[in-house]
Amino acid sequence: VIPASVALGAEVGFDGPGSKFDATDAGITHFVVDRPTVDSAYSGRNADLVQPQWIFDSCNAGVLLPASKYAPGAALPPHLSPFVDDEKEGYTPAYAEEIQRIKSRKAAGATAGDADADAEDVPAGVEEDKPKGEVEEEDADDDEEEGSKGKPQTEEEEQHELAKSMMGKKAKRLYERMQHGNQRRQDKVDRLREKRRKIEAAGRA
C-alpha cells in the first residue's frame, strides 16, 4: 500500500518510528485501515477512512473513487482488472459503468470550468459563429448518416452471404470458426447480463 501511494504522489505516514507525521496531523486526508472496527482516535476527524482496496481501485480507474464504498467493515465493490478490455469482451460490469459515470462527471466539471474561463474572453453581446462552409459540411454529414441508418439490415446479411460464397474452403472454415468463437463469447455475455439482472431484481425486492 505504501509504495503504491508514494508512486501516486501521496505523502504517507504510519504508526511507528520513521513516519513523516503522526495520526494527529491536521493535514491527513485519508486513514487506510484493514480492520472492521476503528480506534476512536481516528473517528470524528475531517478525513476519510478507507480500506486498502480503495488505493488500488482509484489507481486503476485514474480517479479518486468515493471513499464511502470502501469504509472499514463495508462490503467492498468488485475489484476490476485493468487488463480486461470490456469493449472487446462485449460486457461491462455494473461497477465499471459507475466508475465511467464518475469520471465523466469530473471531466464535465473540468470542461465547464474551462468554458467559463473562455467565455470571459468573449465581449458581451458577441456571438461566435461557425464558418458557413463548416455548417454546410456538418449538414451533409448528418444527411449521410441518416441515409446509412435507413439501409435495411437484410442487405448487410446478403452481403455477408455473398462474401462467404466467394471464399475458398480454407477461408470459409476459418470464417466459420471465428463466427463460432464470437457466438460463444456472446453467449457468455448473455449469461453475465442475465445474472446481473437477477441480482439487481433481488436487490430491489
Rank of each mutant, 00 (worst) to 15 (best):
V1P: 01
P3V: 07
P3F: 04
V6T: 13
V6P: 00
A7L: 12
L8G: 06
G9L: 11
A10C: 14
E11V: 13
G13M: 10
P17W: 03
P17I: 06
S19M: 04
S19T: 14
A23R: 05
D25A: 14
D25W: 10
A26M: 02
G27L: 03
H30Q: 06
H30L: 08
V32M: 04
V32Y: 00
D34W: 02
R35Q: 13
R35L: 12
D39H: 11
S40I: 04
A41M: 06
L49S: 05
V50L: 04
Q51S: 05
W54V: 03
I55Q: 13
C59A: 15
C59P: 00
N60R: 10
A61M: 04
G62V: 05
V63C: 04
L64Y: 09
A67D: 03
S68L: 06
K69A: 11
K69H: 13
K69T: 05
A71N: 05
A71I: 01
P72F: 01
A74M: 10
A75W: 01
L76M: 10
P78G: 00
H79F: 15
H79E: 12
L80P: 02
P82Y: 01
F83S: 11
F83A: 08
V84Q: 05
V84M: 02
D85A: 07
E87D: 14
E89D: 13
G90I: 01
Y91H: 14
T92A: 02
P93E: 09
A94N: 02
Y95T: 04
A96K: 07
E98L: 09
E98R: 08
I99H: 01
Q100Y: 05
Q100L: 09
I102N: 01
I102Q: 05
R105H: 11
K106P: 00
K106S: 06
A108G: 04
G109E: 15
G109W: 06
T111E: 14
A112G: 14
G113I: 01
D114I: 05
A117H: 08
D118C: 09
V122C: 08
P123E: 04
E127A: 11
D129K: 15
K130C: 03
P131A: 08
P131Y: 03
K132M: 04
E134A: 15
E136I: 06
E137T: 08
D139H: 05
D141W: 06
D141H: 07
D142H: 06
G150M: 10
P152A: 12
E156W: 13
E156R: 13
E157M: 07
E158G: 13
K164D: 10
K164M: 11
M167K: 10
G168P: 02
K169I: 07
K169N: 09
K170R: 10
A171V: 03
K172N: 07
L174A: 15
Y175M: 08
Y175P: 00
Y175V: 00
M178D: 12
H180V: 04
N182I: 02
D187W: 07
K188W: 10
R191C: 08
R191A: 15
R193F: 01
E194K: 14
E194V: 02
E194M: 11
K195S: 11
K195R: 12
R196C: 01
R197N: 09
R197Y: 05
I199T: 13
A201T: 11
A202G: 02
A202T: 11
G203C: 06
G203M: 13
A205H: 12
